[in-house]
Design a protein around this nucleic acid. Structure first.
Lengths: 139, 139
DNA sequence: GTAGGTGCAAAGAGTTTGCATACGC
DNA sequence: GCGTATGCAAACTCTTTGCACCTAC
């Protein structure tokens, strides 16, 4: 738990019970979590916390770069994950919502080519693969 | 206009004034349009139509494969475009929301490799590049 | 002690739905 | 004429905000 407190201090946020537990849930999840997901994960641990606080903390974490927000094609909620140091992409299971992280990126050259061709300054990209994980593969 | 009527008949939808004008707006737009965008584009032409009809028609068009829905990282609205026959990707300007289509895809081999490595059945992927178009490039 | 954080309830955006009326086939 | 499409208003989901109280530093 101390690692979360250090992290918070590092980015200039006060240490609170709510922020610490949110970091803990986020660090221990392998999936992309919605605000609602976090809210119920926290409730499940017997801690009570307001949903609007979840939203507010997610906002400040995003601002500080601790988490990354994204929306999947498959739902309209915003989902969050701990910001990864390495640029990577996602395999998303359409059945169980599991997310597999893929490190690395095959697109660097392509991105540069596109930028030149279309006279576009590319800052970032998102690449998500949708399908079915091993457990959910329809037979 | 006749081309839209033929298209509607082809997918088995009744021809209505509302559906025809929606197809016309969609075919003549180079951007990704939200329901609200369509609603105001239609209003601008002096045609009155209910917003819920816009949503309902978008739903049926999506179901019939005429349009493709997507959400951008940058907003929470669902956006639509005419379904492209060729698999392609998007360059999205963060300043003016302009969208440039890129034909082709450099990811086929990569996708196959990933699928094998992670034992994942990949059905589809989305690839969007975010940045600034020539007119909006900050100097 | 003070600035910033939290909880609650209410408001906002975007989207969906129920029901009566209108229209395409 | 029948069955689907549309318009309107109300409901619904996800998210944000205002305000009073509380807590970290």
């Amino acid at each position: 738990m101390n690692k979360y407190q250090a992290l918070l201090r590092q980015v200039g946020l006060k240490q609170t019970r709510q922020r610490t537990i949110m970091l803990d849930v986020l660090y221990n999840s392998k999936d992309l979590l919605s605000a609602e997901d976090l809210f119920s994960a926290i409730k499940k641990r017997g801690v009570s916390m307001s949903l609007s606080t979840v939203y507010r903390i997610l906002e400040s974490f995003t601002e500080k770069g601790l988490v990354t927000a994204m929306t999947l094609e498959t739902s309209k909620q915003v989902r969050y994950e701990i910001t990864h140091t390495h640029h990577g992409h996602h395999l998303i299971c359409l059945a169980c919502n599991k997310v597999i992280h893929v490190e690395g990126c095959p697109l660097e050259d392509y991105e540069e080519k596109l930028a030149k061709k279309h006279r576009f300054q590319i800052d970032d990209h998102t690449l998500n693969f949708y399908g079915y994980c091993e457990a959910c593969t329809p037979r």
